[in-house]
Simulated assay, not measured.
Amino acid sequence: MLISAGPVQSLGTESEPRLRFGEDAKPDGAWRGRRFLWLGDKPAYELSFWCGTCAFLFERMEGANETCSIADVEHRLTDGLHDIDQDVVTRFSELLPRGDYLPLLLSVEPRLVRPSQPGDYFAEEQVAVWGMNNFWDLPENPRTPYYRTFGTRVDDGTHLFEFVVPMVPPSWNEAARVAAHAEALAERSTMTAVAVSILDICAPAANITGEYATHWALTHFLLDGNHKMQAAAQTGRPLRLLSLLSVDASLALPNQVARIPELRAGRFLA
């Protein structure tokens, strides 16, 4: 469910953001370098390649090893947001590079999935369109448990998939904090996590499997709320998610990013 969507805003810092989306060094003769979400000076996640015809990807790297919570707004997020809080948006945007962001406040019902187990997008919906990885003859491997939250039809042959990706695996979370959040979620559904997000639009260059389709992948990388997200998944209760959707870092046109509030307000059609 979409609770609120703000206008696109210019946010972030000009110098040394803690997180950034960008390109690795380009090998000699290559068109582009690999695309990453960087945490500090280390790649945290490898992302879909720039071409838009390769299969969608987020693959955890060794740099995804810490969370990005901000202590002085934690109480507000625990109480929960009822609308887009500009102060919270500004505080988290200080972790990010300067650019255009679309703030969204969503209600999500996360379902934890693991690579190559039931519900894994990479082993199911992606294989149905792109087939197996040509080299490994296996599905793409995100190398992390992750959460699925929403899906809907965009138009004929095009489907939106939504993912919430933790910066550390759920097994690193403190069990007592997860249990405390689970108890709190039983009383209120306004508790809020925070993410920086991208929209990657991918379609194969040719009909590989007989099920040609375009996939819109809306991916939220958790900045705050790893324990809350796990608690929501374990209890089956909704949780709110404040998303800062990067227009610049997405593999999508600005007018396609602008459709996300409309699509996210729609009915679940996974």
Rank of each mutant, 00 (worst) to 15 (best):
E140W: 12
Q126N: 06
E94I: 03
T190R: 14
G151H: 03
P204V: 05
E187C: 10
A203I: 14
M132R: 09
G157P: 03
N207K: 15
N134T: 10
H159F: 11
N173C: 14
P97Q: 04
D83A: 13
Q86D: 14
L96P: 01
W172M: 09
L104D: 03
R177F: 07
W136M: 12
A195D: 13
Y146L: 01
P115M: 03
L112D: 05
T144D: 00
L199S: 13
P139C: 05
L105C: 09
T149S: 08
S171G: 05
L185T: 02
D156P: 01
Q117V: 00
Q117C: 00
P169L: 02
P103D: 08
Q117A: 02
P115Y: 04
A179V: 03
G151I: 00
T190S: 14
Q86L: 11
D200M: 03
L81K: 02
G119D: 00
A205H: 14
S189L: 12
E94F: 03
V196D: 07
L95S: 01
T192H: 11
G157F: 11
N134W: 07
N207D: 15
P97G: 03
L95V: 00
D85V: 07
D200Q: 02
H82M: 13
I84G: 12
P204H: 02
L199H: 07
Q86E: 13
I198P: 08
L199Q: 08
S116I: 01
S171N: 09
R91F: 02
L105R: 06
N133L: 07
S171W: 10
R111P: 00
A206Q: 13
G99R: 09
I198D: 10
P103T: 08
A206T: 15
R114A: 08
N207H: 15
D85G: 09
Y146C: 00
I84A: 11
I201H: 08
M132L: 15
V108L: 13
V89I: 12
D79G: 06
L199F: 10
W136S: 13
Q117R: 04
A180E: 15
S197A: 15
E174M: 09
V194F: 11
N207S: 15
H159L: 07
M132I: 07
R177S: 08
A180V: 06
R111V: 06
R98I: 08
Q117P: 00
A180H: 15
E124P: 00
R111N: 05
L104N: 01
A180Y: 10
L95D: 01
V127M: 03
V154S: 00
V178M: 12
D79S: 11
F161V: 10
T90R: 14
G80C: 06
D100N: 12
G131S: 10
R91V: 14
R98E: 13
S189A: 15
E109S: 15
